[in-house]
Design a protein around this nucleic acid. Structure first.
Lengths: 221, 221
DNA sequence: TTCAAGTGAGTGAGCACTTACTTACTATGA
DNA sequence: TCATAGTAAGTAAGTGCTCACTCACTTGAA
């Protein structure tokens, strides 16, 4: 008496193209992997979140790892910011360059899954983790370091290791996101104030310069 | 004919006190949890690493989570640095205070498992994660912020949000450890040089102050 | 009629955890 | 000085369940 009913029973299990189905699986799986990590996520959950049977997941991705790899590959593309930074860098507008990078990096929630995936993949030691991180490293760290280098050559910045300086600045803002999004530390300042403070601190330092005209480069101690 | 041989067969499975066994289980499990996360580690592995049977693990810790919680609880004690920082803070030696914190935070490998446990527990959303992070937050961030506040009141530092400034500095050095230990980014500078650069950048800023006596507080536009 | 899209019902392996047992140490009374 | 009972430390061999993954099948559109 019982008849196989197939997807007719499940309202959302429409027949769609392989390409679209693959994309929807990636979307559903990405947020689960970001929330609970690779080991903490089951293929059953993924299938349920995507509104399909578990068997279909394996039709498109032969293993769970393949699906995970596809997500990392897809998420590892950041171009939006690059052009904007380049444009600002041409004008040698330090405040603007650093503020832009900090804003992009601090703004919470925008792609919270991204940060979590990045950390999870590195911690869990996934093989594609290096590629995943490497692409972002290139965009953010290397370009900022290049900018700092030219400004040092201009004589506008002090002669420091450009890559280390870039890491220091990105460290401030990445760490801020980490505190907020991963460790759930409540933040009392507005997003704009935080960015402004970090940029200001990084560019001009913490030590108060004497208001008078003597020994402008003095250090504490 | 076959006789139950018990731990006499396994050379390392000596009979030791409950207290010591509990401690050795915590040590063995901590490095496994740090390496592969809670979900990635099996109780069988833990037992093997500790040189005991799987059943014994459950004699001391009723569940896998209990064992994990015991590890977080035990690792959440950091006092060594606190007194040293307080002493240096009394002398108002800025370089020294910041260098000490940076050295402690950057030095790689010393307690690499700790950083990984901290991240894993936060990412995987373990309930004790907040307590775990909270204790360190108090030691590092709050004390550094308090120091910065007094130095601002002294007139030595510029008037910035002390907690935000503390986060900015710790962000630099934590991020550096993250890059090195989690993302395996090769570092070309020595540990001392890196610390010195970060402290210098944070205290005096990136922008070159004019060597002459005019407009000492100038900023790049 | 063909074929890709889709599924229910498995399957063996591995998981956290339990049970029923053995062994070694130690305190005590004769 | 011992036999021995009590007990804590320890284990082999499960148990039921969930996991990633498979198989045999159905459905709907061109």
């Amino acid at each position: 008496m019982k008849k196989r009913t197939n997807q007719a029973t499940t309202g959302n299990g429409q027949r769609i193209s392989a390409r679209d189905r693959q994309a929807s699986l990636i979307v559903a799986a990405a947020s689960l992997f970001a929330a609970k990590g690779f080991n903490g996520t089951t293929t059953k959950e993924i299938a349920k979140a995507a509104g399909v049977s578990e068997a279909l997941v394996f039709k498109y991705f032969p293993t769970k790892r393949t699906l995970y790899a596809a997500i990392l590959e897809e998420k590892a593309t950041v171009n939006e910011l690059l052009e904007a930074v380049k444009a600002a860098a041409k004008k040698h507008d330090d405040q603007h360059v650093f503020t832009m990078i900090a804003s992009y990096r601090i703004r919470p929630g925008v792609d919270s899954t991204f940060l979590r995936l990045l950390l999870f993949s590195a911690l869990e030691g996934h093989e594609l983790s290096e590629m995943f991180f490497g692409k972002h490293h290139k965009v953010f760290y290397d370009h900022l370091a290049a900018y700092i280098r030219t400004r040092i050559e201009d004589g506008a910045f002090r002669p420091v290791d450009p890559l280390l300086a870039a890491r220091a600045f990105i460290g401030m803002v990445v760490h801020h996101r980490l505190l907020h999004e991963i460790f759930r530390v409540p933040m009392h300042q507005s997003h704009e104030d935080t960015v402004a403070t970090y940029v200001d601190l990084f560019l001009t330092g913490l030590i108060k310069k004497p208001a008078s005209h003597k020994t402008p480069g003095r250090r504490a101690r």
